[in-house]
Design a protein around this nucleic acid. Sequence first.
DNA 1: TCGCAAATAATAACTATTGTTATTTAGAAA
DNA 2: TTTCTAAATAACAATAGTTATTATTTGCGA
Lengths: 142, 142
Amino acid sequence: MNRIAVKDKITNKGLKFTHQRMVILKALEASVAHPTAEQVFDLISIDNPSISLGTVYKTLDSFVHAGILRKFIDQKGVMRFDAILEAHSHLYCKDTHEIRDYRNEAFEQLLKDFISKNNFEDFEIDEISVVFKGFKKTETII
Amino acid sequence: MNRIAVKDKITNKGLKFTHQRMVILKALEASVAHPTAEQVFDLISIDNPSISLGTVYKTLDSFVHAGILRKFIDQKGVMRFDAILEAHSHLYCKDTHEIRDYRNEAFEQLLKDFISKNNFEDFEIDEISVVFKGFKKTETII
DNA sequence: TCGCAAATAATAACTATTGTTATTTAGAAA
DNA sequence: TTTCTAAATAACAATAGTTATTATTTGCGA
């Protein structure tokens, strides 16, 4: 994603455009998957050593509030940020603590159908979080 | 659950039986739902002011390792303990941060079926965590 | 009953995150 | 363009939840 697209993404949501926000959002778009605030900080620090960790936290939070990013808490209790907004689930490896996206429209539809067909006592459901937990198979060639 | 049953639950898993473990496990069996370590501590402190918070943490952790309890991390990043081991999901209220059990065998079966019928790249799934998020409806009588 | 590994209490340390405050800056208005 | 102001930032203090350390105590097998 280029500078203009990133800038638009920020200003379209009514957020002030700053260099810090540009750098942080670009880092997130480019990041492999679900980085923590510290990982974002480490990533941008190489080229932008003056951006503080506090700013990274605050900026990520304003992106979440603006609906540009999603945030969730991993199995260790650490906040992770996600630039993918479409409904998707996660795979979690108990060995490596790796979190991988699991995108399967049929599954998301299955969940949606279930929610609409069932009542949840006095709850109005507007989001569902699914984490498949297990172990990454390491193919052993004998 | 009586003292003998609680004691058995502890010793059956090869854990040393101590007063602290008895008190903590009884608190969990009796607790409303998904208490934090601090909530357990507060609960037992009334009758057992000498049991330290560190002991509560360590004891809960050994119960989890022994398979007597489950632990999960809530939306705030706080550890919560669960005495119900059967597969079940959770309802989470974004307003009150309340976590409620959602037990629905049909739904759990749906998930199990989905897992067995689908491949998850190189993952071996052995657990699934589902949290329905939304808002508790407050019935307004006009 | 003795011996010892495991458990505990007390407390220090740690980590991820949030709060505070003085300074700077984006962007609207003149 | 310049001015103005609310919002954003850097630096740093503070907090909450949890884990680590260590001296002491205790459960339980021999």
